[in-house]
Design a binder for these strands. Structure first.
Lengths: 228, 228, 228, 228
DNA sequence: GATGAATGAGGATTCATTCAT
DNA sequence: CATGAATGAATCCTCATTCAT
């Protein structure tokens, strides 16, 4: 039970996070590769600054100091650059500290480490996650992407829960799938509301306490044994 | 502890769900009132069909069988009709079955009734909720509206949790505010993912089981006593 | 046998020459109708001046002294204005002098009158015909339009030829359909090459001689009797 | 009277069908020659597939498996490749069976053989002919090319007709030039409408019957003697 | 000679909002 | 109050051609 959030895609088991149909061939020359990177970086900057909808293609090219045409050498449209931005971000979101998770027998410890890793990654990429949320609510392609990712997590966590139930470590009355959906949603949503939202007057939260809280509720919720 | 979800606005304590600044005076004549209603109904239909962004004002006037100009007699812009649509929907979202909630001493029963009422209302207005989600991610006004509503719920539920803790009915190690945020998020997000998303291949869920699951996890999560 | 040309649409039996799908509703107000007419007139002028491909929508609106947006109030795109231009032109192309055709028993006289009427109409609308030729070679919609018109004529003339054959007035060895195609093509193509082409160094032709020639060849070709 | 169609260029008396100004020097190396051929072949394929206007230069280079830059080594622009394509096609259009035409005294036999040869060549190169038609209606250079060719044919055939008239074999009332224009147009246009148009629901025609029909009408039209 | 990345002018189209009738 | 025509700023995208490598 190493991943814990739904509606998200951290720890994706797939080689590429985004629909490969949205990605085209790698540039042939090195100059091309460099230019492409510049565009992706510029796009991320612009997206994070202005949001997906308000980002104009010319903003991106201006930021990348290149012509409009060059943009179209590498991407078909805004959707496609955004996919590329996500693709790059995936490197960072990919269980970066998962190795630190003790493969111990203590389900609580595993859960906590897992949650911490997830929340850290989320916080690091908060703006991008907010962006994804925005885009998913606007572009069917990314809505579907988000949905599929979420379901994958829910299924994975559901298997973990079923396993715990079998071993007598979790409330047997709960439907694993539904419980997984509820708990996974909880984590991802807490992350979103605490990190992703550009807080108007949001007071900073104690990160460790967030980890503790979601982990504790998760454990309690399933009735992990031995946590008086 | 009668309300349970965050990021949402069911059970709003405020007289009007939406920023009053967005609402203008009631039309003088009765014909005016009727025309306004027709426009709001048309707007809701169009919004639900096409989404907020893709809805054109002319779609709405066409649906309402009136002229473009008339629209501006009653609303300043898209934002304002959307506020009016929400305003109307609030009638239905407002704890419609809250009366049925037994004001018993059993926190579990109260919680379950509360969750059921929330989820029922959510399901009834699923399309509109999805819409609000979409708009909130696009229009700062509604983003702020959603945020404030959510925080209000979280605060209310947090008070309930603190109270239970005081009475020895809930895990004293949890921070009431954070726990509330987590659990409230869980419910609203489960509702969103099950009801609001136009599921491509979503299999229908057993509504009662959803109620049971979120309630059970909530109770477990807080360690309600006496639920073997 | 009153019509004689193929690949063309003079004397169309249909109420509207152009695909009705390309035409939208009539403007509601009179001002609208006027504006629409102005745009159609402007479009015709621009098309004849610059050709279909080189005509920019802004040229048309500039010529009509109205804004870009107004264009789109009445037409969806260039294709649609062009259809409207054709629609208007049809009034003039429609057997304008057909009444003068003596309904005599003399097939030759009928044929000659028919050819004269056709060629006159063609000459009057020469620029537009050249335009249609150009557009048909570029836009599938109009290619199909031209084809259907042409075939209609060929069929009609084929019936006339078959009738003459039955009455012993025409070479019985000829296949009516193929003969019709050949002769109809001849007339329309002669008209095109003499009138429609913006002649660089074209010397003017004697119109009556053209009428005589195509009629004579047509009659000879079918072996009308009695024309020593 | 060996050639019979106008608006076309079969049987060209000129060494090169296209304006020599459009053709540049032969490549020096053999590799260069091969590359050029590949480009021409690719261009023809692309033009026939997409039409002249929709053909992008990159489509051609992609088809030829070479770089954009290489294209410009051999051609100045689209116009120039198209000229090269025509140049190559000319080999095939050149009266390939003209030798088989019996140089008999029977004008009808000569005419029939000539028509057959023309129609065969047209059918073989149908797509290219449709293309030329398209380009001629768009590009002044090729419009002029087509016109000049057509006029050359008309003149040649007019001389033939005048000769027949002198020998008492043809209707003396006809103006040779106009009659030639009409009859030549007939043949080329029949060929175009039967072979060049990608027929939506075009039923296949009996080729020999086409030859017979146009020949018979031509002969009748001029009043060849002895064809009861 | 070959390559393919870079350029950027140019045109179509949308739709919220105004205002004359 | 109702109507619906008029407006035009604002962007996206194409693709022939050039030129550095």
């Amino acid at each position: 039970m190493a991943s814990i959030a739904s509606d998200d895609w951290e720890g994706s088991p797939l080689p590429s996070m985004v629909n490969p149909a949205l990605l085209r061939d790698t540039p042939a020359t090195e100059r091309g590769a460099r230019r492409r990177s510049e565009l992706v970086a510029a796009a991320r900057k612009v997206f994070e600054r202005s949001g997906y909808l308000d980002a104009r293609l010319t903003d991106i090219t201006k930021e990348a100091k290149c012509s409009t045409g060059s943009f179209y050498t590498y991407f078909k449209n805004k959707e496609e650059v955004f996919a590329a931005v996500l693709e790059v971000a995936q490197q960072d979101m990919l269980h970066p500290g998962m190795d630190r998770v003790p493969d111990s027998d203590d389900p609580y410890a595993v859960l906590e480490a897992s949650n911490r890793a997830y929340l850290e990654a989320y916080r690091r990429n908060a703006k991008l996650m907010a962006l994804l949320e925005q885009v998913a609510n606007v572009d069917p392609t990314f809505r579907e992407l988000r949905r599929r990712r979420g379901e994958a997590f829910i299924h994975r966590n559901a298997r973990g829960i079923a396993d715990l139930q079998k071993r007598g470590y979790a409330d047997p009355d709960l439907d694993p799938m539904l419980a997984s959906r509820a708990l996974s949603s909880m984590v991802s949503r807490v992350a979103f509301s605490l990190f992703a939202r550009s807080g108007s007057g949001r007071e900073p939260v104690d990160f460790e306490q967030v980890v503790f809280t979601v982990t504790r509720i998760w454990a309690n919720g399933l009735r992990f044994p031995g946590h008086a």
